[in-house]
């Protein structure tokens, strides 16, 4: 905690605000894993943590180091870029895998192949 107090007041409050807000967003996203009722609903929850939480916390980190060390190379952008590009790929693949498994085991409430319906999933 020694270096953070060297920040000017405006930057300190901005960093803390972004950090708190990002952590809260991440918490809500992970809470979604507990509170939503089936897999396809839970699939939506982590995207909040990745899109909202990562961007806010990386912004806080960028601002902090930019002011502290007065450097303007933002390597946190790499994390933001990497996470926002890769998470949709993981989740889409996971959704496909889940759909495949549910069809294979003939679970109820999962849309059949080649049959467009918009039934509510109830497993």
């Amino acid at each position: 905690m020694s270096h953070l107090t060297d920040l000017p007041t405006w930057a300190a409050f901005a960093v803390c605000g972004l950090l708190l807000f990002g952590a809260a967003t991440t918490l809500i996203g992970s809470l979604g894993l507990l509170r939503l009722s089936n897999f396809y609903e839970r699939l939506h929850a982590p995207t909040i943590a990745t899109s909202g939480g990562t961007i806010l916390i990386c912004l806080a980190s960028m601002l902090c180091f930019a002011v502290l060390q007065s450097r303007w190379i933002f390597h946190e952008l790499l994390i933001v870029f990497f996470v926002t590009v890769t998470t949709p790929v993981t989740l889409a693949l996971l959704g496909q895998a889940a759909l495949y498994r549910d069809r294979f085991e003939e679970q109820n409430g999962v849309p059949r192949k080649h049959k467009p319906d918009s039934e509510k999933s109830t497993d």
């Binding site: 939506h44 989740l91 889409a92 959704g95 849309p111």
Partner: peptide, 28 residues
């Protein structure tokens, strides 16, 4: 399109049928 839809928290891309050109997705 798949990346955008999955990155948006409300929608999730599930399956694209190439022959029938239909997309199956899940909405919260």
């Amino acid at each position: 399109l798949a990346c955008i839809m999955t990155a948006t928290p409300g929608t999730a891309w599930l399956e694209y049928d190439r022959r029938r050109k239909t997309l199956l997705f899940h909405v919260l």
